[in-house]
Amino acid sequence: MPAITNDTVQKVWDMLATVADPEVPVLTILDLGIVREVKVSGTGENEKIEIIITPTYSGCPAMDMIRMNIRLVLAEEGLKNYTLTTVLSPAWTTDWMSEEGKQKLKAYGIAPPNPQQNVCTPELFQQEEAVQCPRCESWHTHRISEFGSTACKALYQCDDCREPFDYFKCH
């Protein structure tokens, strides 16, 4: 989150902090790094706010709902003079996920993303990422599938406690 320069900006960030991700409800959209910037121009009645968000994956079906939930929260707070802009560049990365978000994910039973590694290269048959089991904390795990229940997750299984689990794959 960039440095806060203005009371209104702080208020808007606080409102956005209450919007949860519809697929992973323990995370807020701030934890995910979806909100990139809140800009304010003008003062008093002419004050205009621009909220800039970016999608996680191109096809993430949660984005339409997130946009709607942002509008609902802002409407409840009586905020009207704003625009909600979606930008694609720079492309979202799991490196933008907050530390707090990673802890919440783990507590929820989803392994949080490792720091950006080599998974974004086209090399074949790469060594699997070492992912820690969110339940028993063992590192003896293996990947079942690079694609999971949502675009942002891969499917792993723990070789110690045998539980299958989701890994929020680094992207």
């Binding site: 999608p55 994956y57 191109s58 096809g59 993430c60 079906p61 599938s145 690079e146 694609f147 999971g148 229940s149 675009a151 499917l155």
Partner: peptide
């Protein structure tokens, strides 16, 4: 699931 994930990415694009 892998193939439907790929479909979803392509649809988003």
């Amino acid at each position: 699931i892998a193939l439907t994930n790929i479909s979803l990415d392509l649809l988003g694009q």
